[in-house]
Amino acid sequence: MQSAFFHFTSTKQPRNMKKYWEIFLVFFKIGAFTFGGGYAMLPLIQSAVVDKKKWLGDKEFIDMLAIAQSMPGPIALNTAIFVGNKRKGVKGSIFSSLGIILPSFITILLLVIVFTQFRDNTVVESVFKGIRPAVVALIFAPLLRMGKNADITWNTIWIPIAVALIVGLLHISPVVIIILAITLGILYHRIIKKIINR
């Protein structure tokens, strides 16, 4: 009994676990050193996963990216899950997810603990009074460029404007918008277009 246990832990387990920890470490490093969220992480993931480790081919990575960014959830997490799963199945994707999540989890946890202590501090409050309008500006600024990249034309520009007003001013839940967008997308491209073309 003891020897079986010993065999399990000393020879088989460490060799297998090494690959899982390798997956964990790759994504932990990416998670820890990329500021500014998802898209900033992609070049780092590509260089680690495609160029250095060769876990995915170039084309496979690009194809995966197209899908990862159209699915719900942060693109960095979606990419990590895909790569982890390709490499070592579901268990591999658990390790890659933990790797990408833990750095921000630890950072934010430390910050929020400090933040709840100092929030009523007058210096902190005046600093944040300056930061808040800046945050709003940073959200608006990339919209024009994004509109061009998403192929918005004069025929479709009413869609983002309507969504912005309905959600932003009337506070209709974005869940409703997403479900509507999916339904209308399918209706238009699979049915209405066919009828027009007939």
Binding site: P142, I159, V163, G168
Partner: peptide, 8 residues
């Protein structure tokens, strides 16, 4: 296009 509206 809905996503652009959500950001706005």
């Amino acid at each position: 296009p809905a996503v652009i509206g959500l950001i706005a």
